[in-house]
Design a protein around this nucleic acid. Structure first.
Length: 216
DNA sequence: ACATTAAGTGATT
DNA sequence: AATCACTTAATGT
């Protein structure tokens, strides 16, 4: 377990450069640390969100979910980032429209939502951070839309694999074909076939429950 | 040994 | 590119 002394140094190291002293001190007082395992669902669609998360370690994927259970990966969040979407949910007290899943064991800072309003008014560094966050998320969202609209599925798949490898910092991906299909809103059969093509082209090596990327 | 889950394949739309 | 129906392979109990 991480002690509160660690909490302070974690905050200083991971987001210290982003905010003014006063806000950082406040954060140290009220933040809760949450440690997760891989593939833990942080936010379900329909959840009402009470806490704003900031990722300090690890990575999280954000996906859309249709009522029929179909899914689509929208973008990732990694160190120092927050999910601006959840802010809106907090402030407006509406329910989550997305699902957040950890991709590896991760550490999150959780801030109760009652502070958001005050921080917005009091700290310009917080306003800047939130606006910046919205902006980058928007750009990533547009990139994803472009990918879906203009790329063939095999290109999207390759991009997905390299993105995952970069994010997780490893060339060994422990994904099943089904999981990949879910993230790309495709079917397992199609992904299996495309992966086999990629293997023939010397881009990857396949093993059971594991894919080795040969180059980025 | 048997059941379960992951992955491969041919045919059809 | 998706779906169906089926096979084969790997893994857990």
């Amino acid at each position: 377990m991480l002690s509160s002394i660690d909490k302070k140094s974690i905050i200083e190291q991971s987001i210290g450069y982003l905010f003014e002293e006063e806000l950082l001190e406040e954060m140290v007082k009220i933040a809760r640390l949450r440690e997760t395992i891989a593939d833990e669902i942080i936010i379900h669609v329909g959840d009402s969100i009470q806490m704003i998360p900031i990722v300090v370690q690890g990575s999280i994927k954000i996906s859309r979910e249709s009522p029929e259970g179909r899914e689509l990966l929208l973008y990732y969040i990694e160190g120092g980032d927050t999910c601006a979407m959840s802010l809106q949910c907090c402030i407006r007290r509406t329910e989550a429209h997305i699902k957040a899943t950890t991709m590896e064991p991760s550490v999150l800072l959780m801030f109760p939502m009652e502070f958001m309003h005050r921080w917005m008014e009091k700290y310009s560094s917080w306003r800047t951070y939130i606006l910046q966050s919205y902006h980058t998320r928007m750009l990533e969202l547009m990139e994803t839309i472009d990918d879906i609209a203009f790329m063939r599925l095999d290109e999207r798949l390759l991009k997905y694999l390299t993105d995952q490898a970069k994010l997780l910092g490893t060339m060994e991906l422990h994904h099943t074909h089904q999981e990949i299909a879910d993230d790309l809103d495709s079917s397992r059969v199609v992904i299996s076939r495309l992966l086999k093509q990629l293997e023939h082209h010397g881009r990857i090596q396949m093993h059971r429950n594991r894919i080795t990327l040969l180059h980025l």
